[in-house]
């Protein structure tokens, strides 16, 4: 997952969305012009009431050159398909990409992908025909959706002329539902009480998941997948409709 810097996440407390994604995919399949997107939407999406145990999931993580999708690019993508029973890490995929924006030295120190490695990597355009079919028909799982959704949407728009939108389950948002329901009171602030961290490693720790070295796209994708399995085990049920989780 992308390095957010201290205390940058926090106010994304929006509840699960009421978007009818099945209907949206049907509309887009008819309206999209690029064949890759027609195909992507044509695969369809599960109905909102589908129990989470029946939903094919795919955890994704991007490493990027910076925080904002407007002037930064994707350096690597990690992806792992899974469901409630099994994380298919043996089928994980990873791509190293050449971003159209400069790789800052700061981001190099974060995800340890160097200028020379990136130089020989392909552009996202070359990877999309592989990537999009792996996302099609599945609900994406991320930790902090702004990154993956915004970056993919912006990058695809630049390359295919149309943007892409899909449902995501955000494991950070699921934690925020517990720990960001109300802001700290003045009394808490006076007592210098810290908010409970909802970062990936801190959240994982609450479910007794082991610490992983962060900022490696596949590892972070697996880490989010494990976190979602744990969240469902402890707080939801296999029968929870996907609409209560996605947004």
């Amino acid at each position: 997952m992308l390095y957010l810097g201290p205390n940058q996440q926090g106010d994304s407390t929006r509840a699960a969305s009421s978007t009818d994604w099945q209907q949206y995919y049907q509309q887009q399949a008819a309206g999209a012009k690029h064949p890759l997107l027609q195909q992507f939407y044509g695969t369809g999406m599960v109905a909102a009431h589908t129990p989470i145990s029946q939903v094919p999931l795919v955890a994704i993580d991007f490493e990027t050159t910076g925080l904002s999708a407007d002037n930064n690019g994707i350096v690597s993508i990690g992806l792992v398909p899974f469901n409630l029973h099994c994380i298919f890490s043996s089928k994980a995929q990873q791509w190293l990409l050449k971003p159209r924006f400069q790789l800052s030295d700061n981001s190099v120190t974060v995800h340890r992908i160097t200028h020379s490695e990136v130089k020989s990597a392909p552009d996202l355009t070359a990877v999309l025909p592989e990537l999009l079919p792996l996302l099609a028909g599945k609900v994406a799982v991320v930790h902090y959706r702004q990154i993956e959704r915004d970056f993919l949407s912006a990058s695809v728009k630049v390359r295919l002329g149309e943007s892409i939108l899909f449902p995501v389950i955000d494991t950070l948002e699921l934690e925020a539902r517990l720990y960001r329901t109300k802001p700290l009171s003045w009394w808490d602030k006076i007592r210098k009480r810290q908010q409970v961290s909802i970062r990936l490693d801190a959240s994982r720790n609450r479910y007794n998941l082991p610490p992983y070295r962060p900022h490696h796209a596949v590892t972070d994708a697996i880490a989010s997948a494990e976190l979602l399995q744990a969240q469902i085990c402890h707080r939801f049920s296999p029968d929870t409709p996907v609409s209560e989780l996605w947004c």
Binding site: C86, F88, S89
Partner: peptide, 10 residues
């Protein structure tokens, strides 16, 4: 390492 899949059990 490449053949391993993963599962979480409460």
């Amino acid at each position: 390492a490449l053949s391993i899949d993963i599962g979480y059990f409460k």
